[in-house]
Design a binder for these strands. Structure first.
Lengths: 342, 342
DNA sequence: CTGAAAGCGCTAACAA
DNA sequence: TTGTTAGCGCTTTCAG
């Protein structure tokens, strides 16, 4: 056990003072080239690494970022995390990751835990529960304390901060339209995230598309759910009684669920039932048939969110908060039909 | 911007000394109940939160753990991470997550970055490149520095530390056997992690099962690959020329790939080709047909790894290193046939 | 060009 | 029971 060496010990060894060594190692030009060289050699020899905590205490910068996401098992968040991690580590930062599990309480606990000097700022996507409770005091508190927050995906207007999102309304509108243009006549919307701003916006985009297309003669049908078993039963019953020919979902997994259920009930995909979901994940690329989806550029979004936060942390951001809207695009695969030229 | 309040400021406000306040807040019984109450009230009023960095500097404990994983997009690691996160946050710790992207260099960089006082220990699953290079000096260095390491899944005998693994050999042996017992006669093994100890062990388990069953009259066939496009071509050609009736894979994704490819080539699953993979992830449960897999209890494994590390950090572990072997079990689904009673 | 000393916010041994 | 003081490891004035 080769305990870490400190500046002080290096001082004894080298016969220089602590401050000289500190300066030498940070290439301060108060120090002669000669001495610098000597000191650097000794430092290398003893494998000196400045203690991160001491440095943080002094500088009030931790070079670490708190990331709070609802659920790492959803491929969407995993991909965003990859983008965040890349950008952050490129810039010499680290991330402390907390999973809120969609719980308000865990979210608050994580924030509080990290807000007392552990991180320089936060990257967060709101938990479902927080959005339903509509309580974001924990965020305004840390922002007041001087810790910047950047929200992505699930955001709230109640919190004044930078945001990185997609245009959920438009994306869902376009997704629905894609099915309409491939001559679907009876399209339903399915969502496990009804309580979130994202879910609400996407549902509205779907509604608008239906209303625009059918001039309000057809009623949009939105299925919100939280429990997959309940959802399966409900959708099963629906498919039994009705013959929808299109499903738009607000995420990836429920699209796969819906598709598998429909297949098991004998629906031909996409001829009798076309499906489009959100997130270009591992599921949609490998389902059978592969799923048509709205690509949200998750990794890019993560990267932008991280860059935005770091800019803010380092004081290089403009004073007004910005909302960055990431482009989306539909990736057509076999779960939907060709679009019919009008 | 309501800058954080410090003990010193609290001292001025309350007319107590810094140390009295510190003791009072930590319920030290040197302090009278009366004073404690007063101080706690003031602290609450001003929303005092002790600075984590200062505390760490003093105590030499950061209450954070460095987690280094090869790839968060593999469902396996995401599930392990969930287990780690749960256990760790239950115990008042945080995790700094680094993704090595299977790169030796990134792994080394992450370790070095965190080893200088940022974390109390490491939880790691080795990158493919490190295993191929067979270079683990970065780990022995930090261990020598007094930072405990717990390795999970991808481990190495060259590093003396606690480990949490499954019995890869046995699990693959059993998986192969399951296909044999369902009367498969020509089983191949497919693996994208050939370079890792895990991949090697699993391949060996497969080989042993084949050799045992056929008394060495049938040659095991192992397909290692790194690139999915190359793999697809290779497997495609193979399926064209040969008629395997069983595939064992060392992971989840390649099983899905293989299955989809086989289906597209007209194979009936499982009648003509049975498939079994590793990891009970989102893919295998939602594929069509659902995939028979070896459940590795990923989340439990993560939990155990975290608990083991924390025990070691807090000095509550026995001096010898332990290797915890997590149970596995085959979950039978539609990609494999019923086992025929002998 | 080099070093002494203060101080980041906290804890804890020692004094009072 | 409370306060004084030293010190964790580092950076950074300010003196020399």
């Amino acid at each position: 056990m080769n305990k870490k060496i400190t500046l002080k010990q290096l001082a004894v060894i080298s016969n220089f003072s602590v401050s000289t060594i500190s300066k030498a190692l940070s290439d301060n030009n108060e120090i002669s080239t000669e001495t610098k060289k000597k000191i650097k050699e000794i430092a290398k020899l003893y494998n000196y690494k400045p203690n991160a905590m001491a440095r943080s205490l002094k500088s009030k910068k931790t070079k670490t970022i708190g990331v709070i996401i609802p659920n790492i098992l959803a491929h969407y968040f995993a991909k965003v995390l990859v983008g965040i991690e890349h950008e952050v580590s490129r810039r010499g930062y680290n991330i402390i990751t907390c999973i809120s599990d969609e719980s308000y309480k865990k979210e608050v606990k994580s924030i509080e835990m990290l807000a007392s000097g552990s991180v320089d700022g936060f990257l967060v996507s709101l938990s479902k529960e927080s959005q339903i409770k509509n309580n974001y005091d924990h965020f305004t508190t840390v922002i007041d304390d001087g810790l910047p927050v950047v929200m992505f995906d699930r955001t709230s207007n109640a919190v004044k901060c930078d945001k990185v999102i997609i245009n959920d309304f438009e994306a869902a509108y376009n997704a629905t339209n894609a099915l309409l243009e491939s001559s679907c006549k009876k399209i339903i919307f399915v969502s496990p995230i009804g309580g979130t701003n994202v879910g609400i916006e996407r549902a509205n985009g779907y509604r608008k598309a239906i209303n625009d297309y059918f001039k309000d003669t057809v009623k949009p049908e939105v299925f919100n759910f939280t429990d997959y078993t309940v959802f399966t039963d409900k959708l099963d019953a629906y498919l039994e009684k009705n013959r929808p020919d299109g499903i738009v979902t607000s995420d990836e997994l429920s699209a796969i669920f819906a598709m598998n259920l429909a297949i098991s009930k004998g629906y031909k995909i996409p001829e009798e039932l076309a499906i489009i979901g959100f997130t270009d994940g591992i599921l949609s690329r490998n389902s059978n048939p592969p799923l048509t989806i709205v690509n949200q550029n998750e990794t890019e979004l993560g990267r932008i969110a991280a860059a935005t936060l770091i800019k803010r942390i380092e004081g290089k951001a403009q004073s007004e908060f910005i909302t960055h809207v990431v482009e989306t695009a539909i990736i057509f695969r076999k779960s939907s039909k060709k679009i019919v030229a009008v």
